[in-house]
Design a binder for these strands. Structure first.
Lengths: 151, 151
DNA sequence: TATTGTTATACTCTATAACTATA
DNA sequence: TATAGTTATAGAGTATAACAATA
């Protein structure tokens, strides 16, 4: 007999587990994004990369990955997809010749705008039940929870 | 030239996208859960199944999947894992001989309690920065967002 | 006909280790 | 020696179609 407290792990444990609700909600949003982007050649992860590069042209590939929580090794094929679709361009950094600077092509910027507009519309639909207050509270709380290191 | 409104899709689009913050936060929690459960033979998805079955012994396999957003086809191997570890038992339903009724074994219940206790501790750490109000608001909002159909 | 569980299969995202070229 | 990007590979979750047994 271990000294395990069984009394509080009662029915409904999952229902109070934030991680469970996060997974359910995140999956719903990701699935909706995927449907929204279907036919564009863009997937959620690719869109996120386009968005970061749009905001900060010339950003290094590794930095993009850091900001998105995508490991360097997994960035490679994603970047290759965007290159093959000619949505981004890359050039060797002059300060550090190991690094790649990324920027959007014209097509890339067009594609990004189109996807962003569609995503925003879909997200508004998903959030239709929330008040403005609830929405800002949600974003604030989520940012607190995932912002870098556990602080 | 399409009639696309480029003016609002400005820098920082991702930072206002709920789906992005959900994914980042959910991934952080899932990764922490996976670490918490490392060595137990249990993964987040398996734990969720154990929790549902613990709460409603005799529940049908398909119903468990529905509640967790796991498709029937994907439930099969998960249930097989739990059966191989002798954490659950299943029997043919008398009302519907196509269906399986699931319940936890003794070992299954022990394992569930141990995992739940560990997860709760880890989740508390992840949530340490939130006030009680923020926490309840978060759960309420997430439930609204993922609860069945888009209502 | 419809549904429960199953098989087979593929895609997406994530994780780790070892390599190269530069620093 | 450390870092940026790469290669190779594996794990885990999710998605669809087609099938057998039962309803």
């Amino acid at each position: 007999m271990r000294s395990i407290d069984t009394t509080d792990v009662t029915a409904g444990f999952l229902d109070e587990l934030v991680g469970y609700h996060l997974r359910m909600t995140s999956n719903k949003f990701q699935a909706d994004f995927a449907v929204t982007l279907a036919g564009t050649g863009i997937r959620p992860a690719l869109f996120a990369i386009l968005s970061i590069v749009n905001d900060k042209p010339g950003i290094n590939q590794g930095v993009v990955g850091e900001q998105l929580g995508i490991q360097r090794a997994n960035m490679v094929s994603l970047i290759n997809e965007l290159l093959e679709q000619k949505l981004i361009a890359r050039s060797v950094s002059k300060e550090d010749r190991r690094a790649y600077r990324l920027s959007l092509s014209e097509i890339g910027r067009d594609t990004y705008i189109r996807c962003a507009t569609a995503i925003r519309a879909h997200e508004r639909a998903l959030l239709a039940n929330l008040s403005a207050k609830e929405l800002t509270a949600l974003i604030t709380t989520l940012k607190k929870l995932h912002s870098h290191d556990g602080d």
